[in-house]
Design a protein around this nucleic acid. Structure first.
Length: 472
DNA sequence: TTAGGGTTAG
């Protein structure tokens, strides 16, 4: 072009951003300044959108400083792009600082800030902000409800979710697949499958995402049969499953431990022409692992690029479940060697390998290495494994002492494996103490009484065996 | 002719 005006530059920058070339977009922005083309609001909006890793925060801050020289900061679109930029770097306080100082806030800006909190696990603050928005008489639209419902789902808050649903109805928002799948996801996460079904029936047009939301909802609530049935219903329509659908369906096959079904679903994936991404791969590894086909589990793994923590966690856990403790440790070593990030799920696999092989010292070693070398906060699943390792090795008092160091909300998940260990070691003393605590916490839970009675049933058997002369 | 927020998965 012989003459390039601000619109040409904006179009170029926007094009680069939309195609994922963030660094080049920022470069173009600086070139534009060198050529003394005056930027406008739209220029800043485009370039701020490019400000996300791998662009550095220093360069992003420089663009913010540059922006301050113009009078665009009060522009609502620019303000929102600025909030979005800080959220891209997970700088929630900086984003909120910009948000707080905007004199005009529209529903889009509230959505950005709410999504920012929600995406960073600060769900309570997301919902508080939504309430504040309503108090300030901002009219919510369809999009903001999607973010708010996602926060309700993450909090498993049926109370708030129901309230939001009623606001949606009162606001006259269309029950389309977007709102429908968010509602289904929320009700499923809150465990209300009756409402999941009701919302699903109410949505007149059902697309792939809506079908996937209901399949995934049933699967996550361990209603594997229903998930498979709904998937079957979906196949009878003209709506095609996508990667997300297949992941949930594979999980449902794993849930019912059906290798045959899992293999049929795998052939469906291949037929559909959908590429096997990391989500599908890890679901597949998990399915083969839990359905007892170690060979195919490893065959899937070796075809994948070495890039993804979750895939490695899946194979480590799969090998551990098959009792291959040596291979499990080898894979962990390789994972570290390749510089992959490890997380608490990695250690769940490692510890369950130690558990199956009765390797107490190794289990403790990996546990401490997780705390000290990798500085990872152990998940409740890690503690369950650790207590199981100690318990099976007969270190029941140590295991029992550990349960006291953890928050009460986790106690039931920790006591259950401990009580089983008491049974293995016929330790009535610890069993009685654990059982009493469990009954105090959940007197209605029948499984506790069954476990406890199993431990007590050993008493006469042990007494009888005590009189038996094994040597002769 | 250039611009801001969103649904389902490991």
């Amino acid at each position: 072009m012989l003459i390039r005006d601000v619109v040409s530059w904006n179009a170029m920058i926007a094009g680069y951003v939309k195609s994922g070339y963030a660094c080049q977009a920022v470069e173009l922005f600086w070139r534009m300044q060198q050529e003394s083309i005056e930027p406008n609001e739209k220029t800043f909006i485009c370039v701020l959108m490019a400000c996300a890793p791998p662009v550095s925060i220093e360069e992003a801050a420089l663009i913010h400083t540059f922006l301050s020289m113009y009078s665009f900061e009060s522009d609502i679109h620019v303000g929102n792009a600025l909030i979005g930029m800080y959220l891209n770097f997970r700088l929630l306080n900086d984003a909120y600082f910009v948000f707080k100082h905007m004199t005009m806030k529209d529903v889009v800006m509230w959505t950005s800030m709410i999504t920012g909190y929600s995406d960073n696990g600060r769900w309570d603050e997301a919902l508080n902000l939504f309430q504040r928005m309503l108090q300030e008489s901002v009219i919510p639209d369809e999009v903001i409800f999607l973010s708010v419902l996602s926060a309700c789902a993450s909090l498993y808050s049926l109370r708030f979710g129901l309230m939001v649903h009623s606001i949606i109805i009162n606001a006259g928002i269309d029950l389309n697949p977007f709102i429908g799948s968010s509602l289904i996801n929320m009700y499923a996460k809150c465990g209300n499958l009756h409402l999941v079904h009701r919302v699903f029936e109410q949505i007149p047009f059902k697309d792939t995402v809506l079908w996937t939301a209901i399949v995934s909802g049933y699967e996550q609530q361990s209603e594997y049969g229903k998930a498979l049935q709904v998937f079957d219903d979906m196949l009878a329509t003209s709506i095609n499953p996508n990667e997300f659908t297949f992941v949930s369906v594979l999980n449902a096959c794993t849930g019912v431990a059906s290798l045959d079904l899992g293999m049929i679903v795998y052939s469906n994936i291949v037929e559909s022409g959908i590429e096997c991404n990391m989500h599908i791969a890890s679901a597949l590894i998990d399915m083969y692992g839990k359905c007892g086909n170690e060979e195919d589990m490893c065959a899937v793994f070796v075809c994948l690029p070495i890039t993804d923590t979750v895939v490695w966690n899946a194979i480590i856990d799969g090998l551990a479940q098959h009792g291959n403790s040596e291979s499990t440790f080898q894979y962990f070593k390789q994972m570290k060697h390749h510089g992959l990030e490890v997380d608490s799920m990695t250690f769940v696999g490692l510890l369950s390998a130690c558990n199956h092989a009765g390797l107490v010292d190794e289990g403790l070693y990996y546990f401490y290495s997780m705390l000290v070398d990798d500085e990872i906060k152990p998940s409740i699943e890690v503690y369950v494994c650790l207590i199981d390792i100690l318990g099976r090795a007969g270190q029941l008092e140590s295991a029992y002492a550990l349960t006291w160091k953890l928050p009460l909300e986790y106690s039931m998940s920790l006591y259950t494996p401990l009580l089983s260990s008491c049974r293995i070691h016929s330790n009535l003393d610890v069993a009685t103490r654990v059982g009493e605590s469990m009954i105090k916490l959940h007197p209605q839970r029948e499984s506790t009484y069954v476990l406890l009675s199993n431990v007590h049933a050993l008493k006469p058997m042990r007494a009888a065996l005590g009189t038996f002369d094994f040597d002769s």
